[in-house]
Nucleic acid binder design. Structure first.
Lengths: 238, 238
DNA sequence: CGCCATTTTGAAGGTTTTCAATGTCAGTGG
DNA sequence: CCACTGACATTGAAAACCTTCAAAATGGCG
């Protein structure tokens, strides 16, 4: 079980108003006035590469919001098999809003800055600020559609289709949050991609090679991928 | 695109108060007083076997709640491949609360009775009744954990593990809503189960036969399955 | 009883995995 | 500066699992 975040009293007043990712996060619905109170119910906690933020089935006490860096959330089977549920980026939230156990483990990919909420305190805050409850509902509904799309990817797509979908999705997600969307940077390893797509690292590597020979990707470095023809790549996705 | 539900003015006043599945549904959080208003923003609509309730990418105008019967929600790929996202039972809701397009198609399995809400009207109602917004958030968060668990099933489990998980999950779900949980009735076809688990009908049939020879299931009829040893079956799930 | 949809079973084939070896690259120390 | 190290990635060959194609069996319903 991972340790609890510590409140940082010096920074709480201004933290939210100067937050760079607020417009991409569920707290965007709060006005300046509400934001001051909101700052007080959250705190900052940072992690380093491969550090666990929490473990599946831990008592679920907190909800996290990424302000900087990346997170992978994953489920582990008894025999060591791993399934990565998702890669999360600035503005994404994770943890548990309501359940008493975390449904997955969470681990930092590279340096990570998060904003932490106590589950109970956040729930109280929702009662006083229904607008935030509605925004969380919106965001959670969206997460649900993402998860449903992933069910189809894992249930029906071939290896090459999964990889192509993965690459085009990343490109689109980067565009959405205003990052460079071509070439794309992949913060995760090939093994992570495999565990995300329900494949082995060898299959991922082979399909990357196939895409390379078809000139559908150009591997600048192993974590920098250029997509010369996104439309043609999209044709591979189904 | 499917047709819009029609308000039935005669029944709206009493419908919610006599609703048999209310305690399993998101509307359980409303008191008698609020329920009367709530009745007025919903209507009843029934469907027959294999009837489409809506199609993926239709403009999303409604949210549905099952009062009787079963629904399958699924995504269709361009080449005809199908992935069933979920089987839904009384008390489950589906449709779209916020998105402008449905993320999946929905079809009745057998006779179906639903309670229908207009998206926009429901959203207004949420503003006046934050308690319902919170309840919808709870329910959607739960749906999200279910979808995440399914990602692991489809990404990492073998055929026999998927089938065993499917059967034990159904049994537990039946217990939860107070139905007979052994033997379990399967309203869907083998093909549906295959499309739900990302397998072919042949593989599903073969694994059912394997479970039969191991005495882990007893096929009373093709849609009535007795589980003589649920614990042993659970050992097959991972 | 007979029909037709659904399910089961069989055999061959294909995609992905497994096991093993080689290659690449960044960081470190001689 | 270059060899060494270890983590990560790629490639190869064989095997496994699931699918595909085909045929037979079952079972519900007129």
């Amino acid at each position: 079980m991972s340790s609890a975040p510590i409140l940082n009293q010096e920074t709480i007043k201004t933290r939210c108003t100067i937050c760079k990712i607020r417009s991409y996060s569920f707290c965007r619905c709060l006005d300046e006035e509400r934001l001051e109170k909101f700052s007080k119910i959250s705190s900052e906690k940072n992690y380093t590469n491969k550090e666990n933020i929490f473990i599946q089935n831990d008592p679920a006490k907190h909800l996290f919001n990424i302000t900087e860096g990346n997170v992978k959330i994953y489920q582990l089977l008894d025999d060591g098999r791993i399934q990565i549920i998702g890669f999360l980026y600035p503005g994404d939230f994770f943890g548990s809003y309501k359940n008493n156990k975390y449904n997955y483990s969470a681990e930092a990919i590279g340096d990570l800055k998060t904003c932490v909420f106590d589950q109970k305190i956040l729930e109280q805050y929702l009662d006083e600020n229904p607008v935030l409850a509605k925004e969380l509902l919106n965001q959670t509904s969206f997460e649900l559609t993402v998860a449903q799309d992933r069910i189809t990817v894992l249930g029906k797509l071939s290896a090459i289709e999964r990889i192509s979908t993965f690459l085009t999705n990343i490109s689109e997600q980067r565009k959405r949050i205003g990052w460079q969307n071509n070439p794309i940077s992949l913060p995760m390893t090939r093994q992570d991609i495999a565990d995300y797509l329900g494949l082995t690292i060898e299959t991922v590597s082979r399909e990357f090679s196939n895409l390379k020979s078809s000139n559908l990707i150009k591997v600048i470095s192993s974590k920098q991928i250029y997509l010369p023809n996104i439309d043609a790549l999209k044709d591979q996705t189904k």
